[in-house]
Simulated scan of single mutants.
Amino acid sequence: MARVRVRQHVNPLSNRYQQLISIPDWSQIYSNLSLPFHLDLGCARGRFLLQMAQQNPDRNYLGVEIREGLVTEANEIKEEYHLSNLYYVFGNINHSLTNLLASLPPYSLELVTIQFPDPWFKKKHQKRRVVQSEIVEILAQFLSPKGQVFLQSDIKEVAEEMLDRFLENSQFKPLKPEIWLTENPLEVMTEREIATINKGESIYRSILTINIRKD
């Protein structure tokens, strides 16, 4: 399959990305909805989740990406692998994350990954960054009592800001005393992570867990 060419950056605040995510009938997508979910926010071409889904058939995987062409390509590829524990949706999670998570089985969300998000370096553009306080509040509402959030970026400022946004919310705390991890605890690395390591550059990673157990 030819690699889809898409814009590297899109403005999540533009009118084009303010519609709600189109949610399918999950029972027609996943063969077992009782399995825990791993949500990857900003999944790009979806290769990370493609590998994770193959290696872990006991978990459902859901990727969200704002560039529609990448989502179409990713779903076509996952069909070639005949995976019934993986799906990708097109949409802007800053606009419709609640709608998406409310459609999943209650407290089935056990892991959220946010990896190498667009840094939006200019001060006036930083409101476009994916991790905002509203997103953190929504994830705290829907994560299972043993849910975790894995963050990583090759931009220290972005990693620190993501971490601060989560720690500002009383429902999250670092999984371990050492906030920054030296190695990726997951068995699969993203394409960006591999490229960054090959260049000898630093990666800033952290895992957070739910601090307050839900009733």
Results as ranks from 00 to 15, higher is better:
Leu13Ile: 03
Phe150His: 06
Pro119Ser: 01
Asn75Gln: 02
Ser84Gly: 10
Leu86Phe: 06
Leu208Ser: 07
Glu68Met: 13
Pro185Asn: 05
Ser84Trp: 00
Ser14Asn: 12
Lys78Thr: 13
Arg129Val: 03
Ile135Glu: 01
Trp26Val: 03
Leu151Pro: 03
Lys123Phe: 04
Glu168Gly: 10
Lys123Arg: 14
Leu20Gln: 15
Ala102Phe: 03
Pro106Trp: 03
Lys123Cys: 04
Ile23Arg: 01
Tyr81Arg: 11
Asn15Ser: 15
Ile203Leu: 11
Val71Tyr: 00
Gln152Tyr: 03
Lys124His: 12
Leu33Asp: 04
Asp40Pro: 07
Glu183Thr: 13
Ile207His: 07
Val131Cys: 12
Asp154Pro: 01
Lys156Gln: 14
Arg7Pro: 09
Asn211Trp: 03
Val112Glu: 04
Ser27Leu: 11
Val136His: 01
Gln51Pro: 03
Ala159Phe: 06
Arg205Tyr: 10
Lys146Met: 10
Ala74Gly: 09
Glu80Ala: 14
Tyr30Asn: 08
Gln141Tyr: 10
Ile66Glu: 00
Glu79Arg: 14
Glu161Met: 11
Ile138Glu: 08
Phe90Glu: 09
Glu137Ile: 09
Asn99Ala: 15
Glu183His: 11
Ile194Ala: 12
Lys123Trp: 06
Leu139Ala: 05
Val6Pro: 01
Val131Tyr: 07
Glu183Gln: 13
Val64Met: 07
Glu161Trp: 14
Ile29Ser: 06
Phe37His: 05
Leu13Ala: 10
His9Met: 10
Asn99Pro: 09
Glu137Lys: 15
Gln141Pro: 05
Val4His: 13
Arg59Gln: 14
Glu76Asn: 12
Gln28Leu: 14
Leu163Ala: 12
Thr113Tyr: 04
Gly200Cys: 07
Glu178Ala: 14
Leu139His: 05
Val71Gln: 00
Ile179Val: 15
Val136Met: 02
Trp26Pro: 01
Ser202Cys: 10
Lys127Trp: 05
Leu97Gln: 01
Lys124Met: 10
Leu20Tyr: 13
Pro57Trp: 00
Leu104Cys: 02
Arg7Phe: 13
Ile155Gln: 11
Asn85His: 10
Leu208Phe: 09
Ile207Met: 15
Lys173Asn: 02
His38Arg: 04
Glu79Ala: 15
Leu109Thr: 04
